[in-house]
Computed example of a mutant assay.
Amino acid sequence: MPTTKRSSAEFEVLEQAAEWFGVLGAGDATAAERAAFQDWLQADPAHRAAWQRVEQIHDRISALPGAPAVQALTLPPPRRRAMKALALLCTVGGAAALLASRDDSVAYLAAMNAGHRTAVGETAPLSLPDGSQAWLNTASAADVVYDGALRRIALRRGEILIHSHHDAQTPARPLVLDVPAGRLTALGTRFAVLLDGGETRLAVYDGAVRIQTSGGQQRIIDAGSQVRFTSGAIGVATAVDENQAAWRRNILIARQMRLQDVLAELARYRHGYLGCDPALDNVLLLGSYPLDDTEMALQMLEASLPVRVHHRLPWWVTVTPR
């Protein structure tokens, strides 16, 4: 789950909400503690918004099969009781919220029914019948449909890396990647595409890729460039960093990368919340970190930087100055 850049005040309120969540979920909160929580909750609309944010994250974790029970085993007895109580109280609500989201989201259903999927924290090769190579990144989904006219891949969620080969059939069929915002046509290339909220990011490492948005815009992006686009607009191309594709080897390579951005990338490979104190926004990193073991990556950060990693809850982790 990606991090979000927040102000110092927002970060502090979120931390307070997480602390209250742990206190109230322990099952042994005193009347004075419950009254203090209500005072805190009513003191500022930002407190209520932060509390709802913590509840939403916990609900998503609770909806994962077996997650609360497994995570509770890693905690000392008071927190095990807290997680047990929270699982009983919140799993039903989390599942209901998740189901409501499914009913409202065609894109979500398309991703869940896709022929190829990866879980959070998983990357996997995608077999293509023409000999082209592809890989799915964490929490991604795609369909592959080849026919007599097109070699077509549809990215439903997440990120894909494609290394296209020439089609053996005559006449050669175009290799296209369909995304919600339009269609990408490979022009003898190696490229990656990320669905990022309402935008699509295209990074071209070799060859070129033609963008055709659903709104009618077209542009060819050459090797060494990346661009973000929507159904109605194509942004300004910038230089691409080859290291962005290192996720295929389960590695995050940081070259003068902000700590906030490193944590945001690690958050994509784990469940729960991963936050960064805004005081650390300008810390730059140079190094390599494992994406298939984000806890080790966090330990590496703590060992090499003046920071401390706090596990407020099993699914709530924040990084602050030491």
Rank of each mutant, 00 (worst) to 15 (best):
T3G: 08
T3P: 02
T3L: 05
T4I: 05
T4Y: 08
S7R: 10
A9Y: 03
A9D: 12
A9E: 00
F11S: 00
F11P: 02
F11K: 03
F11V: 00
L14M: 06
L14F: 06
E15D: 07
E15N: 03
Q16Y: 07
Q16F: 06
A17H: 07
A17G: 02
A18L: 09
W20L: 01
F21R: 03
F21H: 03
G22P: 09
A26F: 01
D28K: 10
D28P: 03
A29R: 07
A29H: 03
A29S: 09
T30D: 07
A31Y: 02
A32K: 05
E33Q: 13
E33K: 03
E33L: 01
A35H: 06
A36N: 01
Q38S: 00
Q38H: 05
W40Q: 04
L41Q: 11
L41A: 12
Q42G: 00
A43Q: 09
D44W: 02
D44F: 02
A46W: 05
H47V: 01
A49T: 12
W51K: 06
V54D: 02
V54E: 08
Q56P: 04
I57R: 11
D59P: 02
D59H: 03
D59E: 11
D59Y: 09
R60K: 12
I61H: 04
I61W: 11
I61G: 00
A63Y: 15
A63G: 11
P65W: 03
G66P: 13
A67G: 07
P68C: 08
A69H: 07
Q71R: 01
Q71A: 05
L75F: 03
P76E: 14
P76I: 08
P77S: 11
P78T: 02
P78I: 03
R79H: 09
R80H: 04
R80L: 02
R80T: 00
R80D: 01
R81P: 00
R81E: 00
M83W: 07
K84A: 05
K84H: 06
L86P: 00
L88I: 04
L89H: 09
C90T: 04
C90L: 07
V92A: 15
V92W: 12
G93E: 11
G93R: 10
A95N: 09
A95Y: 06
A96Q: 09
A97P: 02
A100W: 09
S101V: 01
S101F: 11
D103K: 08
S105G: 12
A107V: 11
Y108W: 14
Y108K: 14
Y108A: 13
L109N: 10
L109R: 15
A110G: 11
A110W: 06
M112W: 08
M112V: 13
A114N: 11
A114M: 13
A114G: 13
G115P: 14
H116T: 12
H116Q: 15
H116L: 11
R117Q: 15
T118G: 13
T118N: 13
T118R: 15
A119P: 14
A119N: 15
A119Y: 14
A119S: 14
V120H: 15
G121N: 14
G121R: 14
T123S: 15
T123H: 15
A124L: 14
L126V: 04
L126F: 10
S127T: 14
S127F: 06
S132A: 05
S132T: 07
Q133W: 08
Q133G: 08
W135K: 12
